[in-house]
Design a protein around this nucleic acid. Structure first.
Lengths: 224, 224
DNA sequence: GGCTTTACTTTGATTAGTCAAAATAAAACT
DNA sequence: AGTTTTATTTTGACTAATCAAAGTAAAGCC
């Protein structure tokens, strides 16, 4: 079995490569894992020895087939555990990320499959992130964000791509959970602001463009 | 936070000291943890530096107050996780010990408390072992075993003090789960055999004395 | 094209946990 | 009491993962 350190490296590489097979720069990986760059270099070389990644020196790192399989397995554990913590144990969705970071390395595939069944084989976790299938497939639909979408039509929040409890709490308090239907009332690139109105809410809500870019949306069906 | 190695040492010391504050010999601890004795000596000295155990050189080791608190916490996690795996995820009780060994080090107290509530604050795990309370109290009732109990009256199995999947499967197949009511028909010290009959079963069942000593019983109420 | 900045790699050291094997203390036999 | 056995401790070495700091390659910039 891979150590949880190895599992973490693979998971971060997967997340940083955005589904594609682009090279992940070493520095980015170091920052993401919160270790110094030298550490990443040594670890990546040993992962490469183990056939889990390809290392292009001075350029970056990319998952191999078997590294990718492993990384998707870890991600599946992470997201199913998060779903369990929120749906069954009723935990705050802003708190479950840290818990899942630990549990994803301790849970067996047997337990995972039972959890999956208990939850009804969910396709996305509470943040709206897609859960890889047991076969390692991940539905990688490309969504627009509040910063990039068209402004005309009503939108439904599908996903919040940010893990920090502060941001998630902010999102929750303002009703920006996956499923919420909203409408953009204004977007100013110069001010760096997006203003929107939630269905059923009285007040307008202003968001920085940076924050808006973390919220993925799809067109909401007209007048449900 | 204590590493999972530290947690394991403390848990094993707790289990080997049988609730009392007897000194646990280093060799026994080494065997129980499946490491060589030299490793235990070094680790125990560092645990002693951390104030978690008292080390009497060449004699053994004993938990301090704070070591005991930590160990009971780990044991609580272990047994609640086992209960969850059996009661909620419907896993085989003979398989859950190994799973819980991993999960006990990864689960937070917050998650644990929610699990505890979900399960209805159980007092014992599926093997009949008592679950320490959140305050670290453990109901340490002393039970007789099939090897030591009186033979006259009907008995109820309360606990199976053995973790190996083989033994647990054997027990399960022969209906010796906690709660089962049985009656001893014969016990021969010379042959090393105990023979018994389960309520509702047709056949007699023979057990070695060693195996019988792993099964704790209490007097069953007469004709329920 | 040469200088500077930035990103990455190397080197040497550290910590946690482990083993193998030699050394020692205590207990157990004659 | 002296010797043997057994349990424990010490010593030296190893692996995984890390950091600090020095070294190097590649881009970017006059």
């Amino acid at each position: 079995m891979a150590t949880s350190t190895v599992e973490n490296y693979l998971k971060h590489i997967l997340l940083l490569s955005e589904g594609g097979d682009a090279l992940v720069p070493m520095g980015l990986l170091a920052e993401s894992l919160d270790v110094v760059p030298g550490t990443v270099t040594t670890m990546v070389k040993s992962l490469a020895d183990g056939g889990l990644v390809h290392h292009r020196p001075r350029q970056g790192v990319r998952l191999t087939e078997s590294g990718s399989r492993l990384a998707l397995g870890v991600l599946r554990k992470h997201r199913l555990v998060e779903t369990f913590l929120v749906n069954v144990l009723k935990m705050d969705w802003s708190a479950v990320h840290a818990e899942a970071e630990q549990l994803e390395h301790a849970i067996s595939n047997d337990v995972l499959d039972r959890l999956d069944a208990l939850l009804g084989h969910p396709a996305v976790d509470p943040h709206g992130d897609p859960i890889p299938s047991r076969q390692g497939k991940i539905s990688s639909q490309v969504y627009a964000t509040l910063a990039t979408c068209s402004m005309a039509k009503p939108l439904r929040v599908v996903r919040v791509t940010e893990q920090s409890p502060e941001f998630l709490q902010f999102a929750e308090q303002n009703g920006l959970l996956p499923g919420a239907v909203i409408r953009i009332t204004d977007r100013s690139l110069t001010a760096g602001l997006v203003t929107l109105k939630r269905n059923g809410a009285k007040l307008l809500l202003a968001l920085s463009l940076a924050a808006a870019g973390r919220i993925l949306v799809e067109p909401a069906p007209q007048r449900a």
